[in-house]
Simulated scan of single mutants.
Amino acid sequence: MSSCKIDHTIDDVTKKLKEQTPYMNYSLGEKCFNFLSTSVSQADLNELFHLLKKFDLASEDEKKIRIDKLEKLVQ
């Protein structure tokens, strides 16, 4: 993912997750929501936001890469 200088809030990330969950499997969406209910570092919030950003528009290959990164981040 491209690096970004903006720190995303928990609300920003939650909103983005709600927008993108229809485009991912239910289990992964639930893991992401559960992850956000814990104490999440700013770096992890930013990473999660950027993995979710335009998830719906990503190619199938790109989605697979993002899903792998999401799984690792939220486990």
Rank of each mutant, 00 (worst) to 15 (best):
M1D: 01
S2R: 02
S3R: 11
C4V: 04
C4F: 06
C4M: 00
K5Q: 10
K5C: 07
K5V: 08
K5M: 05
K5P: 09
I6F: 05
D7M: 03
D7P: 01
H8W: 09
H8P: 01
T9K: 02
I10V: 10
D11A: 05
D12L: 00
V13D: 04
T14N: 05
T14Y: 11
K15A: 12
K15H: 08
K16H: 01
L17I: 03
L17R: 02
L17D: 01
L17W: 06
E19K: 07
Q20G: 07
Q20N: 12
Q20F: 09
T21N: 04
T21D: 00
T21E: 09
P22T: 00
P22I: 00
P22C: 03
Y23N: 13
Y23E: 12
M24C: 02
M24T: 02
N25F: 12
N25A: 02
Y26L: 04
Y26Q: 07
Y26R: 13
S27W: 04
S27R: 14
L28T: 08
L28A: 05
L28K: 00
G29L: 06
G29D: 07
K31E: 15
K31I: 00
N34S: 14
F35K: 11
L36H: 15
S37F: 05
S41A: 07
S41R: 13
S41W: 14
Q42G: 15
Q42V: 12
Q42P: 12
D44R: 09
D44T: 07
D44E: 12
L45H: 06
N46D: 12
N46H: 12
L48G: 06
F49S: 00
F49V: 01
H50S: 05
L51H: 15
K53A: 03
K54Y: 14
K54R: 06
F55N: 04
D56C: 00
L57R: 03
L57S: 05
A58W: 04
A58Q: 08
A58L: 08
S59R: 10
S59H: 06
E60A: 06
E60D: 09
K63W: 11
K64T: 12
I65A: 13
I65M: 12
I65F: 11
R66K: 13
R66S: 10
R66A: 06
I67E: 15
I67N: 13
I67M: 11
K69M: 02
K69G: 00
L70G: 13
E71W: 08
E71G: 06
K72L: 11
L73S: 05
L73R: 13
Q75K: 14
Q75A: 14
Q75Y: 12
Q75H: 14
